[in-house]
Each structure stands twice: as C-alpha cells, then as structure tokens.
Amino acid sequence: MESRNFRLDTEWNVIHYPEKPNGFGILVVGDERHFVNNSTSFWTQNEGKRSVLNTWKGEGYTVFYSNLYGKHWGSEKAVDLAMRLCSHIMRNEILNNSFHVVAEGMGTLVALKLLENSGIRIRSLALINPIFSLSGHLEQEKENKFFYKKLVAELETAYETEIKQLLARIDSEGNSPPFNHETPVKIIHVLSGNRAYKQSNNLKSLSLQWEKEKLPVSISYVLPEKKLQLGSQITHFFAKHERVL
C-alpha cells in the first residue's frame, strides 16, 4: 500500500508509506494551496511537491498530513486537529514517537504552536518561507488592498470571529518564534517575488537574535530554479538528528 486516505472529524488526511521504512515520520503542514480530499492531495498533484515527497519516501520516511480545514491560518481548531493526527499516527503506525515536521508559509503558525505543546515530541523542524506571526503578515499585506481584503475574509472564516476581535488577540503576539535549545530548526527561504525578499530582510534581523541566544537555527536561501533540491536538503538535515532515538 503506497498511501492511505482517512478522515478525522470532517477533514481528510493522508499517510504515504515508503517501500523501505526507516522508522521515522514526517508531519507536513502546508501553505495556502495545500489540500487533501478522499483520493488525492496537493502534494501528489503538484509536480514539484510530488518530487520532494518521492525523495522523502525514497529515503524511508513515512509522510503524513491533513487538509486542516483549508486556509486555517494557524487557528486553534487546526492546531487541535494536527495534534489528533499525530496521536492517530503514533497509535496506528510503527514509528519512532519523536517525528520531524515540515511546514510551509502559513503552516508555520500551526507548527510553532505544536512546538510549544509538551504533548508533542518534535525531533526537528524544517520551515519553508515561514510566516512567523499573523500580525506581521497582516501589516505586510496592507500594501495591496485586494490581497489584504482576501486575507481578512480568510482569517474571519478560519478563526470564526470578526477581524477586530482577532486583531485584539494577536496584537500582543511578537514576531519572534518560540524556538528552544532542544529542537533543531532549518529555515529554507526561496527567493521568488517581492514578498519573499521583504520576508528575507525580517529573517536576517531575527537570525541575529537567534545567534545571540545560541539557538540551533540554520538558514538557507534558495533560488526558485533550485526548488527541486528541497527534498534532499531537508532529508540531509533530518538525518543529522536521528542518531539519538
């Protein structure tokens, strides 16, 4: 069996099985275009993502992810479902109970909340063009009225509240992610488009803070034409943190 699609709550999830398992799992938390339904997913339909997925499977990783209510933007119910998915996988699959996490874009908002949860054991964390805070992302999107209006509508749907109430909740959050000294983090920033270059400037200032705090965070900058190398970059990073079971 190459993969299995199943439902938790109302949402479809999928687990991809490697031919020769290495005993480690990868939770993927996708970005805006990510989806899962009863028979397929963005990671099997998109050529680039499928190549990365096949690289991971070829190295023996069991890969799993959820639809997470679509454009969740790190909502509490998305985080809760991600935790339930992890528990389900650990109960039903023969895997090391400390797994890797790959998060892209807004998926980072879920991954960071999992990182803060003591009930989830994250072995290492790989972030692709991460969004570290909702307030920072909203501020950046204000420059384009169309995208800002679209984002506000998505946030109200995801958090099931009006934007004014949500802003009051997130205004106090910082732009610095809750990294720690125990979980190694690799940030991969693909330099495509004006937004990515603006985010890279923010990343550079944060990296100085992480370096000062001696946190295990490394950053790689990748050109768009090198995106197919992401799979091998990430597996190389993961392998370095599998020596202790």
Rank of each mutant, 00 (worst) to 15 (best):
I128Q: 04
S3C: 12
G70N: 09
P216Y: 09
S200T: 09
S192E: 15
Q229F: 07
K198A: 12
E141G: 01
F132K: 03
E156Q: 11
S232L: 10
E156D: 00
Y17A: 11
K198V: 00
G119F: 05
E47A: 15
N46G: 03
T62N: 03
W210A: 11
L109A: 02
E2L: 12
S220M: 11
Y197M: 13
N194P: 08
K49T: 12
W43Y: 14
H16S: 06
H137K: 12
I89F: 02
K212F: 11
V110L: 04
R7W: 01
F24N: 12
S135D: 09
E116A: 14
T62C: 02
L230N: 11
T235D: 04
V14R: 08
S66R: 04
D80S: 10
S87V: 02
F237T: 09
N37T: 02
S133H: 07
I170K: 10
G74T: 04
S118C: 03
V14T: 12
V102T: 08
N67F: 01
L27T: 08
T235C: 04
S66T: 05
S75D: 03
I120L: 02
A168K: 15
G231E: 05
L191A: 13
M1F: 06
W56Q: 06
F42A: 14
S51L: 14
H137P: 00
S207E: 14
E160T: 06
N92V: 01
Y221A: 11
I131K: 09
I188F: 07
Y197P: 05
I170W: 06
E154D: 14
V14E: 05
G119W: 03
C86I: 13
G136A: 05
W73A: 02
Y17V: 08
T161Q: 14
I219C: 09
K226D: 15
A111Q: 11
Y69W: 10
E141K: 15
K164D: 15
T157W: 00
L109K: 06
G107Q: 05
T108P: 07
G193D: 04
V79Q: 01
V152L: 08
L114H: 06
E11S: 06
K204D: 08
L215D: 06
K227M: 13
R4F: 09
K49P: 00
T10F: 01
S192N: 13
K145N: 09
N46Y: 02
L112I: 03
R121P: 02
